[in-house]
Amino acid sequence: MTALAATDPQLTGLTGFFADFIDTVGEVGVGVLTLLETLVPPVPSEVVLPLAGFLAHQGRLSLLWVVVLATAGSLIGAWVFYALGARLGLERALTLVSKVPLVDRADLDKASDWFHRHGRSSVFFGRFVPGVRSLISLPAGAQRMPLLPFSLATAAGSAIWNAALVGAGYALGTQWEKVGSYVGTASNILLAGLGVLLIAVVVRRAVQRARRPVDEVEHSRDEVTSAR
């Protein structure tokens, strides 16, 4: 057991290692672990980010820089999977990533299905869905989604998710471990809210498209009337 882990009985095993790594490297360590979380399943953001929030609560880290560097780590990891999808194509990329230990092929197929059903918006909304969060970048890359919109959607969704977990750890203090038990429910609630927002946008666009021919007809009539 190392320095920081020795001061808190909660910080044992892998969690203790994460805590000491972050305490030693600082906010950059949060970014590194978040990058690894995107690429390697055994590094869970539900543990790393609330823990970082707890350390910020103790004054060991800057809350702002934790969120910024965690989001940077998420974005870099997303770029790696995006490049993999763009380089290999979807099926070959899925086959390769499925060979990584603890990566479930069902999660890969779920991410692919999400992208095909929801299009580019899934890159943003997918950041809130376990099993889709990091893997959604593969089909986005394979479909050659423009890099700038992909990066902006990834950064925005990741920033919200990271800030929520870090903030929860900061608010709970020594009870930061409870965050993990609430993540599933919170993710579902947030996703439902975002889904309602997406539906509202889609409905609004559909109404606008439906009204456009009517407006064009009325405009034509006005022109004919004016000509007379």
Rank of each mutant, 00 (worst) to 15 (best):
T24Y: 04
V100N: 00
K178H: 09
G157M: 02
R204W: 11
P42H: 06
A164I: 08
A153E: 05
G53P: 03
Q143P: 00
G157Q: 02
L55C: 10
T174S: 14
A142C: 08
V202P: 07
N188F: 11
I189Q: 04
A56R: 02
P42V: 01
P41A: 06
A210P: 02
L194Q: 03
A5I: 03
T24D: 04
T174D: 08
V67A: 13
G31H: 08
R209N: 03
N188T: 06
T95V: 10
A93Y: 07
P101M: 10
S62R: 12
L135H: 01
V48D: 01
G16S: 08
A3G: 09
V196K: 10
L90R: 12
T38H: 11
F125A: 13
R87L: 04
T15D: 07
L165P: 01
P146N: 09
P50K: 02
L33T: 00
I22G: 09
A70Y: 07
L138A: 06
K178D: 01
P44Q: 12
A140L: 08
E46I: 13
P50Y: 09
G119E: 03
F17E: 06
T34V: 15
H219T: 12
G53I: 00
S226M: 12
V202M: 15
G126I: 01
L61T: 10
S62I: 03
A52D: 02
F18K: 04
V129E: 01
V214E: 15
Y182M: 13
